[in-house]
Computed example of a mutant assay.
Amino acid sequence: MDWLQIVFLSLIQGLTEFLPVSSSAHLILVPVFTGWNDQGLVFDVAVHLGSLLAVILYFRHELVRMSISWAGSWRAGSLIGALSDPDARLAWWVLLATIPVCVIGFIFHDAIESGMRSPIIIGLGLIGFGLLLSYADWRRRSGRSEYQLTLKDALLIGGAQALALIPGTSRSGITITAALLMGMSREGAARFSFLLSIPVISLAAGLEIVGLVSEPAAIDWAALSAGVLLSGVSAYLCIHYFLAFIKRIGMQPFVVYRIILGLWLLWVFW
Rank of each mutant, 00 (worst) to 15 (best):
D2R: 06
D2N: 15
W3F: 14
W3S: 07
I6D: 06
I6M: 10
S10R: 08
L11F: 14
Q13F: 04
L15N: 06
L19G: 03
V21I: 15
S23P: 12
S24G: 04
A25S: 07
A25Q: 09
H26G: 04
L29D: 07
L29R: 07
F33Y: 10
F33P: 08
G35P: 11
W36T: 06
N37E: 15
N37G: 12
D38G: 10
D38H: 09
L41N: 09
A46D: 06
A46G: 03
H48Y: 01
L49F: 09
G50E: 05
G50M: 04
S51R: 06
L52K: 03
F59N: 04
R60D: 04
H61Y: 15
V64G: 05
S67E: 11
I68D: 12
G72V: 11
S73R: 12
A76Q: 08
A76C: 07
G77D: 14
S78N: 12
I80H: 10
I80R: 13
D85G: 06
R89D: 07
L90M: 11
L90C: 09
L90N: 07
L95K: 06
A97E: 08
P100Q: 04
C102R: 03
C102M: 14
G105W: 08
F106C: 00
A111H: 07
S114T: 15
S114K: 14
G115H: 14
S118K: 03
S118V: 03
P119T: 00
I120F: 13
I120P: 05
I122Y: 02
I122W: 03
G125S: 02
L126E: 00
I127C: 04
G128S: 12
L131H: 12
L131T: 10
S134G: 14
A136E: 07
D137W: 06
S142R: 05
S142Q: 13
R144Q: 04
R144T: 01
R144G: 08
S145G: 14
Q148R: 13
Q148V: 01
T150P: 14
K152G: 02
K152W: 11
D153P: 05
L155V: 15
L156D: 01
L156P: 05
A160I: 08
A160V: 07
Q161P: 13
Q161E: 13
L163D: 02
A164P: 00
I166F: 11
P167I: 07
G168W: 03
S172P: 05
S172L: 06
G173E: 00
I174D: 01
T177W: 01
A178N: 02
L180N: 12
L180T: 03
L181R: 09
L181M: 13
G183S: 08
G183Q: 09
R186K: 09
E187K: 14
G188A: 01
A189C: 04
R191Y: 10
F192R: 08
F194W: 10
L195C: 10
I198S: 09
V200G: 06
A205L: 13
G206C: 04
E208L: 15
A226F: 00
G227M: 01
G227L: 04
L229I: 12
L230R: 01
L230Q: 01
S231L: 05
S231Y: 05
V233S: 06
S234M: 11
A235N: 08
L237Y: 07
I239Y: 07
I239C: 09
A244T: 13
K247D: 15
R248W: 08
I249T: 14
M251N: 02
P253C: 02
R258M: 02
I260S: 11
I260W: 07
G262P: 12
W264N: 03
L266R: 05
